[in-house]
């Protein structure tokens, strides 16, 4: 069925049976008035209850709207936030966020409102609870274990193994074969400069 639909779409698009004039997206809906933009739907109060905070406006409103819009995913885009996207749906959602924040809803309430209809998918970052915590715990655990292994490696390798001490120079031992021409020629001078630097400050 999927394939039939896709084929149909392709056919229609190419023969442009329905395309009267090129229609430019992002300018599709009716322009909303300022009042329309700030009105909340009846469903809001059913979903997240009455607003508990004080109404907000001005720069504080803009700042919080932008921060929240970065946390909410644009449903018609691919992986962009409502803040980043220029799609009409995203701009509508941003206006909705602004209306909610202006009415005094908290960040968490706004997120819950969108989550009620779109699901957890709408959050740009998983809610930090329950199973989701794994997305932080797994990397943290891996980094911790890695750090432990690294520390042990440094400790283990730091102890010179018997039979090698004799070849060691005070600067540690380099594999002779790997010394580049530059190091053979310049090495002593660079060492000297380092010594000079050291004596200069010491």
């Amino acid at each position: 069925m999927r394939i039939t639909a896709a084929l149909l779409l392709t056919m229609m698009a190419t023969t442009s049976a329905w395309g009267q004039s090129p229609r430019w997206a992002n300018d599709r809906g009716e322009d909303a008035s300022a009042e329309q933009l700030l009105t909340l739907g009846e469903d809001v109060i059913d979903t997240i209850g009455p607003a508990t905070g004080p109404p907000l406006q001005g720069p504080a409103l803009a700042a919080r709207t932008e921060a929240l819009a970065s946390e909410i995913r644009c449903p018609v885009c691919q992986g962009q936030s409502v803040q980043a996207s220029t799609a009409e749906a995203a701009r509508n959602m941003k206006a909705q966020i602004e209306a909610l924040v202006a009415a005094g809803y908290s960040d968490e309430e706004v997120l819950r409102y969108f989550e009620a209809s779109y699901g957890e998918f709408i959050r740009m970052m998983p809610r930090a609870e329950g199973f989701n915590l794994l997305v932080w715990i797994i990397p943290a655990l891996a980094l911790l274990l890695g750090a432990l292994a690294t520390w042990r490696t440094i400790r283990r390798l730091g102890v010179e193994q018997p039979g090698q001490g004799s070849q060691s120079t005070p600067k540690g031992q380099l594999k002779a074969a790997s010394l580049s021409t530059e190091e053979k020629e310049l090495g002593p001078w660079i060492e000297q400069i380092r010594t000079e630097l050291e004596s200069g400050h010491g």
Partner: peptide, 29 residues
Amino acid sequence: GFTFVVLVGTVFPLLAEAVRDIKLSVGAP
């Protein structure tokens, strides 16, 4: 560690779907 963090974040939505049967996003934040 960086590789692991990015890998886990990238495939976590699949894991969440397999275990919790819900879609979620692990995005830029």
